[in-house]
């Protein structure tokens, strides 16, 4: 009994039943299983422990683990829903769900707001935006004089900070992105529609016998 099952089974802490995850997200069961193939690949790229570390996350984004990036760090922190310093499969699926083309617009707006609210104050504040702008310029090796950066910030806050209190709240953000919908482009990943085609090997590893549509 069980003598053929000698291959050690990798444990995936926080891995929920694909059927439950599918019922609570925009993904089908097959798509959740395909995401698991992606998750396995990322979570084993440095240490094969069934969890995605910050280093593995950055490696997946930049294909270079030495690259530190304020934005990738921020996305990692938002994906790390349980604040454990690592992303488990449940975090991964539920976070990517916001990026699904069919996800609710309001969820995308709220996630993008939290993304730019670097210090979790409940507001996007001017010093935070300046910090991100400087990081972007550094990353893209673009040079802008400080007065030009201040001009960009002036214009941005004039447009977005409706009550002119120096910070953008969620109501102001909602209005600003509705007038500038291109800002939400980063919140939709068309790849998520084709995830089963990108990771067809999920079929061989599926634990679900029959999928009822």
């Amino acid at each position: 009994m069980g003598c053929f099952n000698s291959k050690p089974t990798r444990q995936y802490p926080g891995k929920e039943d694909p059927v439950i995850l599918a019922s609570q997200t925009a993904f089908t069961v097959s798509e959740v299983e395909a995401l698991f193939e992606l998750f396995k690949s990322i979570s084993s790229s440095v240490v094969d422990d069934g969890l995605i570390s910050k280093e593995e996350f950055q490696l997946a984004i930049f294909k270079n683990k030495k690259k530190e990036n304020i934005f990738a760090n921020r996305i990692f922190d938002l994906f790390d829903v349980k604040r454990k310093g690592v992303i488990d499969f449940d975090d991964f699926v539920r976070s990517l769900n916001v990026f699904h083309p069919n996800a609710a617009l309001e969820d995308k707006i709220e996630f993008s707001f939290r993304l730019y609210d670097l210090h979790n104050t409940g507001f996007i504040e001017r010093p935070e935006v300046k910090q991100m702008l400087i990081a972007l310029l550094f990353e893209s090796e673009m040079k802008l004089a400080d007065d030009v950066i201040e001009t960009i910030l002036d214009k941005t806050f004039l447009d977005a900070d409706l009550n002119q209190d120096g910070k953008i709240d969620i109501v102001e953000w909602r209005k600003f992105v509705s007038e500038n919908p291109s800002l939400l482009k980063i919140m939709t990943l068309p790849y998520l529609r084709d995830i089963t085609t990108s990771f067809p090997s999920f079929v061989f590893n599926s634990n679900v016998d029959e999928i009822v549509a």
Binding site: I70, F71, V129, S140, D159, I186, L189
Partner: peptide, 26 residues
């Protein structure tokens, strides 16, 4: 594109660190 005509968030959203599509590239 002259960056000064863009709003700060448009510029920031061009960071590679915010481009999650790279997660799907093998």
């Amino acid at each position: 594109v002259a960056p000064v005509t863009m709003n700060a968030f448009e510029l920031i959203s061009k960071s590679q660190g915010l481009n999650l599509s790279s997660l799907f590239e093998k």
